[in-house]
Design a protein around this nucleic acid. Structure first.
Lengths: 147, 147
DNA sequence: CGCGATTAAGTTGTGCACAACTTAATTGTG
DNA sequence: CACAATTAAGTTGTGCACAACTTAATCGCG
């Protein structure tokens, strides 16, 4: 009996591949805005709530400070965000959209619409897939925490 | 009317997060074998079919030579695989498991079982999710190719 | 056969991810 | 109040991903 799991049969591999495929679809469109996908996620978070701290951004994106800090440094160098040391608590840094960063919102929304259309499924199916994935992530995270 | 897509509502973001979460679950287990997740995928492909060329491995993992070549260099340095320049076509390099690489198979299979169990869903649901993700990837890829 | 086009693998450069660590500010407890 | 513990952000080092490129071998067409 063959117990070796085949690559193509693995849900984890399908996940890894799907994630890279969709980011690859975003890439040429985001290139025109001068953004990478993680940078785009930062802007999405700020379009929703401007002035988040570095930690709050990390929570929203599920990324630690070692990833977020250099990401913000590049976004600031590109002129899309601005970092401000908080006066109340000098440890905290809040991140704010610049004019240029705020101005990308409508083009950014258009890109998410185009990508959604490329999924090859209805909005309802896409929502169901998203919920399934979020439940999966939650289960995996609780297992990690319980180790 | 608010048309800005929220981060948590995006299927693409759920995908990106789920992929990183599950790789994070693999990490401590693969660490004990001295492997990263992409390195583990290479071994899975070779456990199924030993002696693949670099290009065939790239096709199996959906990665280009710029990613696979250094990956194989590290796997070879770790003593899990061996590269052989083909005598028939000197451009081609085939990748073969060493004793040590082949010996990891049973422990590797056990890890995939443990991770599968952490998904928080039945094997049938996991299979359905996998198929959904593969259909998604296929649709996204065909859109990319058609641009 | 000759030679331009193609193919295989590898290299270079940029930007994530993440573990481990550092620095500096703040908090809580005696 | 003192000061150890905690917290916030950033740094360092490793290993992907991927675009763009290089090198070398093979192919195919005239």
């Amino acid at each position: 009996m063959d117990t070796t799991p085949r690559l193509r049969e693995q849900a984890c591999f399908a996940l890894y591949t799907a994630s890279r495929a969709v980011i690859g679809l975003y890439r040429p469109m985001l290139d025109r805005l001068g953004l990478t996908y993680p940078q785009f996620l930062v802007l999405m978070a700020l379009w929703e709530t401007d002035g988040l701290t570095v930690t709050a951004l990390g929570d929203a994106l599920q990324l630690d400070s070692g990833t977020v800090s250099p990401l913000l440094k590049r976004l600031e160098a590109a002129g899309f965000v601005e970092r401000r040391r908080e006066s109340g608590d000098e440890r905290r840094v809040t991140v704010h959209l610049t004019e240029a960063g705020a101005a990308l919102e409508s083009r950014g929304c258009e890109i998410t619409r185009v990508v959604g259309g490329a999924a090859g499924m209805s909005p309802e199916e896409l929502t169901a897939l998203r919920d399934r994935l979020n439940a999966f992530t939650e289960s995996v995270r609780s297992t990690r925490a319980a180790e």
